[in-house]
Design a protein around this nucleic acid. Structure first.
Length: 495
RNA sequence: GGCCCGUUCGUCUAGGGGUUAGGACAUCUCCCUUUCACGGAGGAAACACGAGUUCGAUUCUCGUACGGGCUACCA
């Protein structure tokens, strides 16, 4: 969800300003490669209606769009930085660094590879040129680190937060190029943003602390005038408790965290998706857009086009947004009411056939019949698939009758009333809702019964359930023959 | 711990030196409905705290508290 929202804001901003939306795969960590993840991202964006102008899956002038396929483009810039004195080789092993962290921790301090410590470590700044060259010639594993100066103030303007300041002494010497030859995100995104002519880098707030290192890198590469504008988005927080929204929260609280269902290829674990849960993509997008952004008006239902028109970073909130699953449901219900009856009837047709195995010629599968079902069911559901569960009696006769209503209302003395009701209905020429209701009322009056005394029973006899769609329109839809047959079945069960 | 970001009803948020602090979700009451919903009306519900600036601070500044993020050869 968080990733989709970030992509959505980037997309909205791009489209609002006549720009392009690019999809680049930042797969520089080979240990974290997940089969299927890339296709998943593409499919998720497609479902959301976020169109990729350029990037993986569609190509474009800046190809390739996978960082793993751009590997050779990065090294030269790391070397350039060494050349200009803004980066250096470091030969410290993982174990050595771990040891540094441990001993710092014992002194209740934090180890950072930076201006305060680098001169005590094993790197091209502390080693002689010959020693360094020897290590390089011997293929001793090494990384290239950014040389962050001490005590400089780094200032930049964030599109959401305004001016942000950092003291460079607190910024560590970030690894630019890893010992496997791959760049880190810190180097790769800068080289790519520059080469791909990115104007705006929109990312989560978790990147804010490393932004000064990025600013410095642009500066040292002499690309400062081409540096994109940064926007650090507030995070999505758990519905309850503390911290940012995570996959586990969905499992725990019973809502999807992923746009599409995702099966972890390693563990086989399945995480539910909004799409599979029956959310409309419009509702999902609408809901996500409103989490941290507002239009400045009181409108809350937006199509993608309307979002594009309305979007601006001026109205992105600074604080993290706690996700509310109930509001997501509400958005879906709103979008459900906006669906066309024809489209819903079309989809209902398919699920009815699948669910009840009706013959193609069955009257319940006629368009007019299904459309009326949709009209009756629509106001009382939040998800389209509920039409089957909540409207089952519209397609098949009940086999059981709500026992609470029956035991409360049914008396054998009511038998004569129902007999005359059925006869009266039999006589009705145009069996529509109004006629069925009139006849019902007349008959109950003639039998000295208040309609309320027998109305619920009638509903239960016809539908089996105590709750449901409006009774007389339902009866009219089912048709005279079906209703009378159902009533007779029910009545015989009563005696 | 250090650094950075943040803080308006339970939640998402509007607003911004002088307002009855507005809307939405959720919740409660009533109306509609002889079902359940939808819909309508109404209620309860918030400016974290302390200083300072000011005639006046929810709004500006500082501090405190609290929350979040970062603190990897992950992104």
């Amino acid at each position: 969800m968080g990733g989709v929202r970030t992509a959505l804001y980037a997309y909205l901003f791009a489209k609002k300003n006549g720009g392009d939306f690019l999809l680049r795969i930042e797969d520089t960590d080979q240990n974290r490669f997940v089969p299927g993840a890339e296709d998943y991202i593409i499919e998720a964006l497609r479902w959301c209606g976020i169109h990729i102008d350029e990037g993986v899956s569609v190509g474009g002038p800046h190809a390739p769009y996978r960082q793993s396929e751009r590997k050779e483009k990065y090294r030269q810039y790391a070397l350039q930085l060494i050349e200009s004195g803004h980066a250096y080789y470091a030969f410290d092993t993982a174990e050595e660094l771990e040891q540094q962290r441990k001993s710092a921790e014992e002194k209740k301090q934090t180890f950072a590879y930076g201006s305060a410590t680098r001169m005590n470590l094993k790197n091209s700044l502390t080693l002689s040129a010959d020693e360094t060259q020897k290590l390089l010639d011997d293929d001793v594993p090494h990384v290239i680190r950014l040389k962050v100066p001490a005590d400089e103030t780094i200032v930049f303007t964030d599109l959401i937060r305004g001016e942000v300041q950092f003291n460079s002494s607190l910024v560590d010497d970030k690894v630019l190029l890893k010992s496997d030859g791959m760049p880190t995100y810190h180097l790769a995104h800068i080289v790519d943003d520059y080469q791909m002519e990115i104007t705006h880098a929109i990312r989560g707030e978790e990147w804010l602390p490393s932004a000064p290192a990025h600013i410095l890198t642009y500066q040292y590469l002499n690309w400062k005038d081409k540096m994109p504008q940064y926007a650090h988005l507030p995070l999505l927080l758990k519905p309850d408790g503390k911290g940012k929204l995570s996959k586990r929260d969905g499992d725990r609280l019973g809502f999807p965290v992923f746009p599409l269902e995702w099966k972890d290829p390693f563990s086989g674990e399945i995480s539910s998706g909004y799409r599979e849960k029956g959310y409309y993509h419009e509702a999902f997008i609408n809901m996500l857009a409103m989490l941290g952004w507002n239009p400045g008006t009181e409108q809350e239902l937006f199509t993608m086009d309307e979002l594009v028109q309305a979007f601006s970073f001026d109205h992105v909130h600074k604080a993290g947004a706690r996700f509310d699953p109930e509001k997501a449901v509400w958005y879906n219900a709103q979008w459900l009411q906006r669906q066309s009856d024809d489209d819903m009837a079309e989809r209902l047709s398919k699920s009815v056939q699948q669910q009840f195995k009706l013959a193609d010629s069955h009257r319940c599968l006629q368009k007019s019949y299904l459309k009326e079902c949709v009209r009756l069911l629509k106001p009382r559901i939040q998800f389209e698939q509920e039409m089957i569960a909540k409207g089952e009696y519209l397609f098949v006769a009940p086999t059981e009758y709500d026992s609470a209503v029956v035991s409360k209302r049914w008396k054998p003395t009511l038998q004569p009333f129902f007999s005359s009701l059925l006869s009266a209905w039999e006589e009705v020429k145009t069996f529509d809702a109004a006629e069925a209701e009139q006849t019902f009322k007349h008959t109950s009056e003639k039998n000295n019964l208040k309609p309320g005394e027998v109305l619920q029973l009638t509903r239960v006899f016809v539908s089996g359930q105590a709750q449901g769609v409006d009774l007389f329109p339902m009866i009219a839809l089912l048709g005279k023959a079906e209703v009378i047959q159902r009533m007779n079945t029910a009545l015989s069960r009563m005696s």
